[in-house]
Design a protein around this nucleic acid. Structure first.
Length: 267
DNA sequence: CGAGGTACCTGACAGC
DNA sequence: TGCTGTCAGGTACCTC
């Protein structure tokens, strides 16, 4: 499930393979996933690939941007030459033809994610609703704490997953961060004391950094360009039966989503 | 305004 | 075997 660490992994790999290359043409197989506008204004050179929250931004030298979101099951694949077989044809949404005959593809099983072409203004508008980047230097404990103070009555787990609150956390890392902080996922923000707020701040940053080092978590549908991440081996509660301290993990439902937590470690 | 619920979409899997 | 129901979940959109 692509969250911040998985998207960051994909961005780093795309940067290696696609940055400073020219997109000559795009073949759109599924216009619901790849907006037809993406094929216009080519060829164009990719001069930067970056991440904001869970979005991927390709900066083109044509004064436009490609905005990609993996949602649940979106994948990029880089294919070295035109003669190579399209290994992932089954869910192929689009083919990006690069200079020199290589290409990369976008595949989307559930067709939730996709790629659109946007202007600088549209890009700014899309990101204006996003909360801060949890790994940014400017995201200090003070910044996190003042954010928490704005929503005293909200349930902490739901808020951690709210992209306008904090950009990049999803169901897995929100749960893992709460385990690290010893906070029950149904706790209201106003009920969390300052020491647990600090543990949550440090816990979520540590977990994101560690997961990036592991190239993300590979569960069910997520794999990055070069294979699989390994953070799933380090999960404490998500889809686990026992927490690292050998207590039984419980599963509850919050907003139609499963939440795993340890009733003994998280009060 | 915030908070909570639901639709979107398809594959995996359990149960009969 | 083959059907049905449930679950997975990021985000936009809706209602209260």
């Amino acid at each position: 499930m692509p969250e911040l660490p998985e998207v960051e992994t994909v961005v780093r790999q795309l940067r290696q393979a696609v940055c400073f290359r020219t997109i000559e043409a795009v073949t759109i197989k599924d216009p619901k996933v790849i907006s037809p506008a993406v094929a216009q204004g080519l060829p164009a050179r990719v001069i930067d690939i970056a991440r904001r929250g869970k979005s991927i931004i390709f900066t083109l030298d044509s004064n436009a941007y490609l905005l990609a979101h993996l949602r649940m099951t979106g994948h990029f694949h880089v294919v070295p030459s035109r003669s190579a077989s399209l290994e992932y044809q089954k869910y192929l949404s689009g083919i990006f033809h690069l200079d020199g005959g290589s290409f990369f593809t976008f595949n989307e099983i559930r067709r939730f994610g996709g790629i659109t072409k946007v202007s600088a203004k549209e890009l700014e508008k899309a990101f204006s609703r996003l909360g801060p980047e949890p790994l940014a230097d400017s995201f200090t404990f003070t910044a996190f704490d003042s954010l928490l103070h704005r929503f005293p009555s909200a349930v902490i787990k739901t808020k951690l997953m709210d992209q306008s609150f904090l950009a990049g956390l999803g169901n897995i890392y929100a749960q893992e961060a709460l385990y690290r902080a010893g906070i029950h996922p149904q706790t209201k923000i106003e009920e969390i004391g300052v020491s647990k707020r600090k543990r949550l701040y440090h816990g979520l940053r540590e977990i994101l950094r560690l997961a990036i080092k592991c190239n993300g978590t590979t569960i069910q549908n997520f794999s990055h360009l070069d294979g699989k991440g390994s953070f799933q081996d380090l999960l404490s509660v998500y889809q686990r039966e026992k927490c690292p301290r050998r207590h039984r993990v419980e599963r509850i439902n919050q907003g139609g989503r499963s939440t795993y937590y340890c009733p003994r470690c998280q009060k």
